[in-house]
């Protein structure tokens, strides 16, 4: 079973690494977007409401907008990567399961691909961010990586969910773009009349943004933000995997008989 899992996870990752368009987008788009946003937004103080205290604290608008730009880029790219693979391989996955690949193994491999890609993309985005804004400490950098990772996990799981339910590739891409844009734009505090409103907590990027700003500016990480972020990952992921399981199940057991 372990060997089967390792093989399945390896090919799930090989497939991700062969998505050259997504990788090219990652390599070019993240620094370009950070540079553009960094150049557009001037230094200046802006209020950001922390979930842990409920209080506004002042942060540099330029730095916090760079964080938002990173969220925007990585949520788009990770969701696109996972969506493209899930949608393209629906029939292939079904064939593998029919051939005898245990569904839990197929599901574990999908989760592994999301986690590994999310971790790598988050690491890359953090390293690029440091080129434009140097957080005060290594701990702050780790907090930003964690925040990016959590956002990438949620959007990777969203990509999987859309990949198993949306029939049109174009519709899936548009949904990813619209959801990511709306979500990450709303969380940005600079020149946003809706900034710091309570309803923002209902969006997937809220928890990661709280962790990035709070941890990135040396105020620690609230457990509630962490749990909220993981809840989005789990919610999208479980729903997507349930539908994947439903679609790939066979109508017989042990290859001996199948019946209505």
């Amino acid at each position: 079973m372990l060997q089967t899992y390792l093989t399945t996870a390896r090919y799930a990752l090989v497939e991700q690494l062969r998505n050259r368009f997504a990788l090219g987008l990652l390599i070019v788009f993240v620094p370009l977007w950070d540079w553009l946003i960094g150049a557009l937004i001037a230094n200046g103080s802006v209020g950001f409401k922390l979930q842990s205290t409920g209080q506004l604290f002042q942060v540099n608008g330029h730095d916090v907008t760079l964080l938002t730009a990173g969220f925007n880029a990585i949520t788009l790219i990770v969701a696109f990567m996972i969506f493209a693979a899930a949608r393209k391989n629906a029939g292939f996955d079904r064939r593998l399961v029919q051939a005898g690949l245990p569904q839990p193994v197929a599901i574990a491999a999908k989760v592994t691909a999301i986690v590994v890609m999310a971790a790598l993309v988050a690491l890359y985005a953090t390293l690029i961010l440091i080129l434009f804004w140097r957080p005060a400490s290594l701990t702050a950098c780790v907090a930003i990586w964690l925040a990016y990772l959590l956002a990438a996990l949620s959007y990777g799981a969203l990509g999987l969910l859309l990949g198993v339910v949306v029939s049109s590739e174009l519709a899936g891409f548009f949904l990813i773009i619209m959801i990511s844009l709306m979500d990450t734009f709303l969380q940005a505090p600079v020149e946003n009349p809706l900034a710091n409103k309570d309803f923002l907590a209902a969006f997937p990027a809220y928890g990661p943004m709280q962790i990035a700003v709070s941890g990135g500016f040396g105020h620690g990480i609230a457990a509630a933000s962490l749990l909220l972020s993981l809840a989005w990952f789990a919610g999208f992921g479980l729903l997507g995997l349930f539908i994947f399981w439903w679609r790939t199940r066979a109508w017989h057991s042990q290859r001996l008989a199948h019946a209505a």
Binding site: E15, K88, F92, W251, H258
Partner: peptide
Amino acid sequence: AGALRPTHGQVRIHGSLGYCPQQVILNESL
């Protein structure tokens, strides 16, 4: 092949099954 559920009736396969679908179902990246 067990890939589609009948409205009624049943199928019994004794042993292992190989199924070659009409449309090629492969992974273009591999």
